[in-house]
Simulated assay, not measured.
Amino acid sequence: MNLILQGLSQDRAAATHIANLASGRLIDLSATTWRCEGIAMSDALKAEIDSACHIAKLDYAFMTPERQLSDFKLLAMDMDSTLITIECIDEIADMQGLKPQVAAITEAAMRGELEFNESLIRRVALLKGLDASALERVYDERLQLSMGAEKMLTAIKAAGIKTLLVSGGFTFFTARIKKRLGLDYTHANELEIVDGKLTGKVIGEIVNADVKQRTVERICTELGILPAAAIVMGDGANDLKMMRVAGLSVAFRAKPVVRAQASVALNFVGLDGILPLLT
C-alpha cells in the first residue's frame, strides 16, 4: 500500500516521523503532501498512524498504488458542510431568531441520533411564515464554498468525470450552485413557498439517506457505470448509505460515525485533498 500524507503546513519532519512508523519510503509530492511507499498495512498500524496524524494535524489515506482518477466517472457530493461551509437551514433559521433550536436538531441528525425525515420536518416547520427573501440573503451573504472546492472541480472536470450534488438541503441553493460551478446533476428538497412566505413544509419526497443512495445509483445507471466508479463525499449520517455503494467514500470534516466508515477522511486539508490520492 501507499500511505498519502497531507496537511496545511510544510512540516516534513512530522511526515518523516510517520513514514518511519510505517517503515515506508517517503517521497515529496509537494511542500505539504507526501507519499510513503511499500507499506504493509494492518489494523494496529492504522491505529498508530491515526493517532500520530491527529497530533501532527495531517490527513492520511492508505491507497493501492494502481488507483487513478481515471478509474472514476462520477463525483457525488453532499452540499451542506461538505461542498459549502454552512448548513443552509441553520442560517435560514437565524433569520427567524431560531438558529440555536434548529442547529441542535441538525447536529443530532448528522450524528445519526435522529431519524432524518423527522428532523427535517421539525426544522422546516420552525421556518413557517419567514419571508422567502431570507433564502436569497443566506445565499448572498453567508454561503461559501469549502476550501479546495474549485480546484477539485477543475481537476474532476478535466478528467471527464461527471458531477452530482445530492443534498438533504434545498433546491433554492443547489440550483444556484449548479449554475455557478457548472455541475451536471443536482437533487434536493423543495421548500413550499406561498405568497412569498415559507409554509413550513417540504414539497414531495424528502431527500434522506435512502433517496441519496438511490440518486447516486440512478445517475450511475444513466451514465452506464457501476457505483464502484463513483467517488462520494459527505459529512453526516445521512450520507452513509450513498457512501457505502461508492468505489471511494470521502468523509469531509465529518462526524465520527462517518469518519469511521469512510474510505478516506479529510479533517484538515480542503476538498482538493482527494487529488493526491489518485495520481
Rank of each mutant, 00 (worst) to 15 (best):
K201F: 11
T171V: 15
L126C: 10
L83W: 07
T163D: 06
A149C: 15
T85H: 09
V245I: 14
V264G: 03
S51K: 14
I4W: 00
E190M: 14
A251D: 07
D90V: 04
A14W: 02
Q96M: 15
I18M: 02
E150C: 13
L74V: 06
P65G: 07
A103W: 11
I121W: 07
A260R: 11
L181W: 03
Q10V: 12
H17G: 10
D235K: 05
Q6Y: 01
N208Y: 13
Y60Q: 13
E87Q: 08
Q10R: 15
T85Y: 10
L266N: 03
R111T: 08
V211A: 05
E87L: 08
A230P: 04
L58V: 07
L120I: 09
V216I: 09
L58M: 09
E190F: 10
S167H: 01
L127Y: 11
A254K: 04
L223N: 06
L29R: 08
L5E: 07
T85D: 13
Y185P: 07
R67I: 04
K46L: 11
G270H: 04
L277I: 09
T16H: 05
E87T: 02
M77A: 08
S42I: 11
F268C: 14
M110Q: 03
L74D: 05
N117E: 15
F72D: 02
M79H: 02
L127N: 06
A246F: 01
G24H: 02
A246C: 05
E136N: 15
H54A: 15
L29H: 04
A22V: 05
G273K: 00
D272F: 07
M243A: 00
K99Y: 13
Q101A: 04
A125C: 07
K178V: 06
A104H: 08
L248H: 00
A52K: 06
S146K: 12
H187K: 15
K178N: 12
D195G: 12
A260N: 11
M1G: 12
G168K: 02
G24S: 06
K57P: 05
C88K: 08
M63G: 02
I89K: 02
A158K: 14
E113H: 12
P276M: 11
L248D: 01
A254C: 11
A56M: 03
A109P: 02
V258N: 00
M1D: 10
D184P: 00
C220W: 00
L181P: 03
A15S: 08
E118H: 09
A31G: 12
T154F: 13
D90Q: 07
L135A: 12
A104E: 11
G160E: 10
K179H: 13
T64E: 15
L181N: 10
L75R: 03
L223W: 00
S119Y: 01
L29G: 05
I49L: 10
A13Y: 07
V258D: 01
F172S: 13
K212S: 02
G196S: 13
M110D: 02
G148R: 03
A61S: 11
D28K: 08
C53H: 05
N238D: 02
L120C: 03
D11N: 12
N20L: 03
N2Q: 08
I39M: 06
M95P: 12
K128M: 12
V264I: 11
E141G: 09
V194A: 13
C36K: 04
I225M: 07
T163N: 08
R12N: 09
S9L: 13
I84D: 09
K201G: 05
T199H: 10
I219V: 12
I105H: 01
P65D: 05
L198V: 11
